[in-house]
């Protein structure tokens, strides 16, 4: 079982330290992300989901505790090693450019190419594999600004796949999508974890869908950060601690939120 773990966070406190003040957002967090699992991170706005993601992706240091990626401290890894083990998908807008979808996905191979970025046959095989897995063959010669938001999100996932890392972290991938595309994206993520044995961690506000499709969930509340399987979290009643509002109640039978 031990070798299944890709990323482990033990007893970390997250937050920001300025000159004198320590602003701890959450403490005593234990997480372990395993191979082949689709894991959803949920929590109310402003609870510190982004800070947690920034900390476990090595962008920001924890106030205490360590995050290890493949048994190495993530905050001591060099840039290249980190890029070969962890890829990200963000919601931010891409800067204007003439990049085609194929070129954009090919950029995912940068951690492996030589100084000028020459693609080897192996690189091209990985790129084509990522395109096939995400079923976007029809988009590859389009410019990245010519496709819809939903399509772009999938292209960015393909880019992360081409980067060929054991762990992929997505920051709110379903935010700008309608119901149809949200479901398609969730199903894609689910299929990718099954077919590629990668671990995919994503933050989301679509809790109902995450309950149905993810293998594990991480719930962030002001009191604690809990990681477990969705069915266990339902039995424990953890979802009711998510929002401090008596009008929003989680219905354990139906597996979704009811509001009055």
């Amino acid at each position: 079982m031990e070798n299944k773990i890709i990323l482990q966070a033990s007893k970390i406190s997250i937050g920001y330290t300025s000159k004198k003040v320590k602003n701890v957002i959450a403490k005593n967090i234990d997480l372990s992300l395993e191979k082949g699992k689709l894991i959803a991170l949920i929590g109310a706005n402003g609870i510190g989901k982004s800070t947690l993601l920034r900390t476990i992706t090595g962008i920001q240091k924890p106030i205490s505790g360590t995050v290890s990626l493949n048994k190495k401290n993530i905050h001591e890894m060099d840039f290249l090693n980190l890029a070969q083990n962890l890829s990200i998908v963000l919601t931010e807008k891409l800067p204007p450019s003439n990049l085609t979808v194929w070129e954009l996905i090919a950029l995912g191979r940068q951690p492996y190419t030589n100084w000028i970025g020459t693609l080897t046959d192996n690189d091209i095989a990985k790129i084509n594999e990522a395109i096939a897995l995400t079923q976007i063959e029809h988009l590859v010669s389009k410019k990245h600004f010519e496709i819809s938001d939903g399509q772009l999100q999938i292209v960015l996932i393909a880019r992360a796949l081409a980067q060929d890392t054991p762990l992929i972290v997505l920051d709110e991938p379903t935010t700008h999508l309608d119901l149809l595309h949200k479901i398609a994206l969730f199903k894609l993520l689910k299929r990718l974890t099954q077919e590629t044995e990668k671990c995919i961690l994503f933050s989301t506000h679509d809790i109902d869908m995450a309950i149905q499709l993810s293998d594990e969930m991480i719930i962030m509340t002001p009191e604690a950060v809990i990681q477990d399987q969705p069915c266990n979290l339902i039995t424990k009643g953890s979802f009711n601690t998510l929002f401090k509002d008596e009008h929003i109640v989680f219905d354990a039978q139906k597996g979704r939120f009811l509001f009055t």
Partner: peptide
């Protein structure tokens, strides 16, 4: 010598970092 990082920067600073760029 910066042609490769410049290409990474086409995706913005955060993606460029995640691709192993200093």
């Amino acid at each position: 010598v910066n042609i490769k990082p410049l290409n990474a920067l086409l995706l913005g600073e955060n993606y460029a970092r995640s691709l192993g760029m200093n």
